[in-house]
Design a protein around this nucleic acid. Structure first.
Lengths: 198, 198, 198, 198
DNA sequence: AATGAATGAGGTTTCATTCAT
DNA sequence: TATGAATGAAACCTCATTCAT
């Protein structure tokens, strides 16, 4: 049964099918599974993606683009920016994103693929966070920090909080602890109370 | 060429051979490589380890035991404990440990194995760190924190700092940023200056 | 981008494109490569050639026709024919031809195609050479020989000399040895000296 | 159904099975066919031969060794050597050999394998024939010839005669014509009569 | 307990040919 | 007649695990 589609449509079908399966089954997904889900023949897959890793790369690019679009409003800094909200808002966004990705996140960021095809450094989350830290410092809102390693740390805590929630941790508590940490890290004032304990 | 050894000795030889190779070559190591290194036959491997993942589990247990032994002095809390040094000392220890593990760390903590055989929750680093946080709070040294999610966060930043150093980041800067974060997180006082920037 | 051409013109474009690529890349050429070179669509290929082997057959026919045209003057026997020159001239022509064909020769004469589609016997070079031998004998110029197997032998030595030259052998020496062999084979007189050794 | 054999025996079984199938079906034989014939599992094949071409290389080495053994008596030159018989005897031997090899000859000497894994030059038949020509010249038996290209020519005619016979040509006539050519080529005397025509 | 030959499911990729438009 | 997206049958190779000796 031959289904003729415009290349972009067919490519998208494969991409979407793969995303769906990867969310559910993570690294266990194979080319065979994807073409079955996309109602395409095996060879069709290779018309659009030269290798399996090329598919993952395309999905990663899509997800990052989605994420950047969603984050843009938060990152449009100006005089009216409420710096107290920037990192918590971003963290919430990322946690939603990762949480919604299920096993896809694993396949893209904790697998052989991650080693074979590392992201270009400037696209990595840690680098973006370092830029935000710099901007906050420049705006006089954040304390003095070393942006690059601090970006790495912020990336780590957000990431791990998302993973913990995926693994079953209580979301409210996890996120409260995260927000507290972020606040303490970047602001010079006295400590905030942690929600759950107060 | 048959070499009869006491079972435990033979088991240990395999374990040590595997550790050595995993450090050097990470997830690329195969059963064949291990038995060659251990000068044992392939079947012998399966006398001691039912599956490859069981070997990894045994190695993980060994590494964790080593780590606990090394951490014991730091964690022997008493009236004389200098709480300012506990987390930095522990972080330094862990970073040394992970850094020295090379590809073994990847194989144990960022691979399919990690998903197939999650550690029992009470053995996880995050749980230990939660206990420390509790102890610090009980001793009146730490600020009020939610121990469990905070343990997760501390674990994440230490872990990630080690990974960044393994991947080539500057150790002094990374560790300074980490220490700063840990200090800000658990102490209620005014901010410390970050080493590299001061 | 649809280009309507007279059928024969389109067919010729494909043929010429294939020849060009086969010369350069031999058996590694694919249908995709040919249509790209001919600026035609893949399906168009199959409008003109039912299978890949049919293309090769068409090319083979073309090459043989070219060759026959080039050989015609040499083979126009008459009272004025210098029989000493017939075989060397033909050999030189063939060697030029094969040498100039590069990988095309391999694709046509040393590949699966050769086995799948043997040439009709009467078209084969060996058969033509047998005819020449017969003519030479009839003219009283050549010694008594068994034309058919001798045609096979002459074909073999010319062919192999060309292959050797393609593979890097010294052309002058190879051709001198060939001419010497051909002379000794068909003439009854005393041996010639071989150029390179004299 | 597991059949445990000594490695040499199993390797030989695979080799023999492959030879048998290659004789019958030439380049159409696949790994699957060989293991079926050898009553082995697919993986077993790769225990003994890293790639398909390695199998062919092993078979080629075997065949060449067989051939050298069979040719040794003919090539043990001494004062008693009858130089008139050397080349015809060798030719007869080779023709028998090639004829008996069927499609194996094609797979080893006229296929992609031949291009991927060319024989070391000194092992090639043409080189051996060049040595024989030299020896014959040194013994004063052969006329003056250029050994290397002449070796190529002799190899070609023997080879082609065998192929022609495989393809259905009359063996007696083919071999008579070959012997005549070889005689005329290497000896300075007047022509011999060709058997079939005399 | 030790050995190592044997297994075979599983995975990726290629490419001549087909056929809906 | 032309197009080019779609097909799917091969084909090769890996490697954790089994089991006869």
């Amino acid at each position: 049964m031959r289904r003729r589609l415009k290349p972009d449509a067919r490519r998208l079908e494969i991409l979407v099918a793969a995303e769906k399966l990867l969310k559910r089954h993570g690294t266990a997904v194979r080319v065979d599974d994807v073409v079955a889900e996309a109602r395409a023949a095996k060879g069709t897959f290779y018309t659009y993606f030269a290798t399996w890793d090329d598919l993952l790369e395309a999905i990663r690019a899509r997800k990052i683009a989605e994420l950047e679009a969603a984050a843009a409003p938060i990152l449009a800094f100006g005089p009216a920016t409420d710096w107290r909200k920037v990192l918590p808002a971003l963290a919430a966004l990322l946690i939603d994103f990762i949480t919604a990705s299920g096993g896809l996140h694993e396949a893209l960021f904790h697998s052989a693929f991650t080693r074979n095809r590392p992201e270009p450094p400037h696209k990595r989350l840690a680098a973006r966070l370092a830029q935000i830290v710099k901007a906050g410092m420049a705006a006089g809102a954040y304390a003095k920090l070393d942006p690059e390693p601090t970006g790495v740390l912020i990336s780590a805590v957000i990431h791990e909080t998302a993973d913990a929630i995926l693994a079953g941790a209580d979301r409210a508590r996890s996120q409260a602890a995260l927000d507290h940490l972020l606040h303490r890290l970047v602001f010079a004032d006295s400590p905030t109370e942690q929600g759950r304990l107060s």
